[in-house]
Design a protein around this nucleic acid. Structure first.
Lengths: 199, 199, 199, 199
DNA sequence: TGTTAATCGAGACGGTACGTCCAGTCTTGAC
DNA sequence: GTCAAGACTGGACGTACCGTCTCGATTAACA
C-alpha cells in the first residue's frame, strides 16, 4: 500500500513509530469515530510526535486509510466451492457483515465518504480495498463463464457493480439492513440477468 | 423540507435572509467545493450574519443540503412512455448526467459523503433526494408488473437498489464513467433478471 | 436624573416599564455583577422588550447607573452635630460601609470603572453620585471655617479630595479595608493639616 | 511580572512572539484605546496567531496589563534631594503628568478600571504598578521620620493614600486637572498634617 | 366613544469579537 | 542525527451580546 499513501523516502527510520501510529489510528477511530478523531490524539496515543506523522503521511485521512488497510488486509479469504451463487453469496455476506457490524466497516464507510474530497485517498481506497475484492469475485465469475454457466457476453464490470453497488448504496443512504434475504435477492436477480439466454 | 433541517419557530423568519442563504450556499459551493466552503463565506455573500445562519441551521452541511434540495427540486420530471426500459434508461441517464457532470451532482455526492457523519443529514438526504426519485421509478416498475411485463414476485426495493446502487457506487469509488453503454448494461441485466421466467 | 441619561420625549413613557427596568437592573447586577450582566437579562427579567430599554437609555451602563442612583438616592442623610470631626467621620464611615460591604457599593465601583470608557456616564456619576455627597461635606467644612475652627485659606476642593480620594483609591486598588481606624487616621491627618496654624 | 500575569510553563515560549504581542498591545491601545482594542488586532499587528495569545494570557486585559507594565517599568526614577516636600512633589508631578497627559497614563487608568472586574488583574496592577511607587515614596517618608522632620507616630500607609488617593480620585471622577497648584495643595496639607506637633 | 399614533412585548436581524479547536509546520533539547 | 515534545501560524468554528429593526397588539389622549 506504500505506493499510494506512502513515505517520501521509504527509508523508514522507526518501524516502531510506524506501527504505533497505525495501531493508534485504529484505536482512536474506534473510540471517537472519524469526525472527532485528531492527529494530536493519534500522536499522543502512539507516543510519537506530530512531526513524525506528517513526515510519513500527507494528512489525517491518509493515516486512517493506511491503518484501516493494514488492519483489514488479512481478511480477504474467499472460498472457491464450484458454485457461483454460493461463492458470491458467501463473499457478499462476509462483506456485508464487516461493513454493517464492525468498526472496521465503519472505517471503510468513513473513508469512502472522506475520499470524496481527497483524490489520493480515493485512489488508495479503490486500489487497496475495493479492487482486491473485485478481483477475487471477477475470477469467480470468469470461471463460471468458462464453465458455460453464464452468458459469456456480459460485461463483468457491470456485474460486479450490480453486486457490490447495492450494498454500499443501501448502507450509505440508509435504506435498510444488509441481511441475508436482501443479499439473496440481489444475487438471485443478477444471476437471472446473466444466465445463458436459452437456458 | 423544513421538517428535516428544521427551524426553531418558522414564524417570524425573514424570507429574504432564508433565500439569500440558500442561494449563496449554492454559489459558494460551486466556486469552492464542499471542503473549502465556510459559513462565513455564505454569510457574507448572502449579506446575512453568521448568527442568522446558526439560528436556523445546525451546521454547514444542513445549509448546503437545504440549498441543494431547493435548487434541485424542480427537476424531478419523469416521462411515462409506456416502455419500462425506455423510462428507466431515461431517468437513469438524466440522473447520471446530473451526478457526474453538474455542480448540483457534485453537491449531491458531497452531501451523501458528509451525511455519513451526521444522522439528521442522512435522513434529509434520503427522504428529500433519494426517496422521490425512487418513488417515481417504483411507480414505473409497478405499472410494468400490472401490465404483466415483468415478474410480480420481485422485491421492488431490490430492483431499485440494483438500478441506482451501481450508479452511486461507480461514481463514489471512481470506477469509471456513467455513460450510456454502462447504463444500458445495467438496465439490460436487471430487466433480464426480473423478466417473467418462461417468457 | 433624566437630564443626563435622558429620554426622547418623556411623555408617553410607561412608568411600569421604567420602574421594572431599574429594579431588574439592580437585581441582575446583584446576581451576576456588572461584567456578566446583559441587557437581554434585564429585559426578560423586567418583561420588557430590549427595544424599550434602548428607547430610553443609550446603553447598558446608563441603565445600571440610573438603577443605582434610584436605589441609593434616599440614603444621603447627613447629620449636623456641630463637631466637624464627628460629622466627617460619620459620613465617611457610612460611605465606606456602603462602598465596601453592599451590592450598591459594588455597583458604584463598577460604574466608576465603567465610566472611564464612557464620557456621559462619567458626567452622570460625578454629578449624581459624587457631587451631592461633596456638597454636604463642603457645607460642613464651610460652617467650620465660619466658626473659625479651621484655616479659612484652605482650598475646600483639595480637602474634599483628601477625604474621599483615599477611600476610593484604597478600595479600587485593593490596598486594605476601609475600617474605622483607617478613617480615623485619614480624618485626623487632614484636620491636623487644615487646623488654624497657630492653634 | 511573569509571576502575576503568568505563563503555564514559561519554558519553550517564543521570545519573539512574546515581545511582539506586548509591543503590539501598546501600539493598538495607543491608536484605538482600551474599549476598541481587540485581540485580533493585537495578533495581526504582532504577526502572531490568536491561539498564541490565548495560550499565554487569559484575556485581553492581561495582555494589555503586561504590555503596560513592560513599557512603563523603566520610568520609576526618584530623586532623593534631602527635602521631603521637594521629593514628594517631584514624584507626584511626574506621576500626575504621566497619568493625565500620556497614553501610558491612559492605559493605567483603563487598567485600573478594568481590574475592578478581574481579580488577578487587580493584583497585578497593585503589585506591579502601584506598589513600586509607594515603596519609593515610603522610603522617602521614613527617612524624614528618621531625620525627625515629621511625626514618627503617623501611619505611613495612610500618608501614602493621602498623597496618591486624591490624584487617582480626581482623575477618575473627572473633578479637575492635576496641575501644580493642586499637587502643592495636597502635599502642603498632608505635610502640615504630619508635622511634628509642637513645631 | 371611537380614532389615531406612540409605545409596548416579542424576537429576528446584521455585526463584531470572543475564545476554542485543529491542521499542518517549525523549533528545541535530549538521547 | 533522530525523535518527542510541543509552540507556532492560520483560519474556521460556534457563541454571545450588542444595538437596530419590524411586527402586531395595546393603550391613552384627543376628537
Amino acid at each position: 500500500m506504500e505506493q499510494t499513501t506512502t513515505p517520501p523516502s521509504a527509508a523508514r527510520r522507526s518501524e516502531r513509530a510506524h506501527q504505533a501510529v497505525l495501531t493508534s489510528a485504529i484505536e482512536v477511530f474506534k473510540e471517537l469515530g472519524y469526525a472527532r478523531l485528531t492527529i494530536d490524539a493519534i500522536a499522543s496515543r502512539a507516543r510519537v510526535s506530530k512531526a513524525t506523522i506528517y513526515r510519513w503521511w500527507p494528512n489525517k485521512a491518509a493515516v486512517v486509510m493506511e491503518g484501516f488497510l493494514a488492519a483489514v488486509e488479512p481478511e480477504i479469504a474467499f472460498p472457491d466451492s464450484g458454485s457461483l451463487r454460493r461463492d458470491l453469496i458467501s463473499q457478499m455476506v462476509a462483506l456485508a457483515r464487516l461493513l454493517e457490524k464492525t468498526r472496521l466497516g465503519q472505517m471503510a464507510v468513513s473513508l469512502l465518504a472522506e475520499s470524496q474530497h481527497d483524490h489520493s485517498l480515493r485512489t488508495a481506497f479503490r486500489d487497496q480495498w475495493i479492487a482486491p475484492r473485485r478481483a477475487v469475485a471477477r475470477a469467480v465469475i470468469e470461471r463460471a463463464i468458462e464453465r458455460g454457466e453464464i452468458d459469456g457476453g456480459v460485461d463483468v464490470d457491470v456485474v460486479l457493480d450490480l453486486l457490490y453497488g447495492p450494498l454500499y448504496y443501501r448502507l450509505l443512504v440508509g435504506l435498510g439492513p444488509l441481511d441475508r434475504p436482501y443479499i439473496d435477492g440481489v444475487v438471485q436477480t443478477v444471476l437471472e440477468g446473466i444466465a445463458i439466454p436459452g437456458k
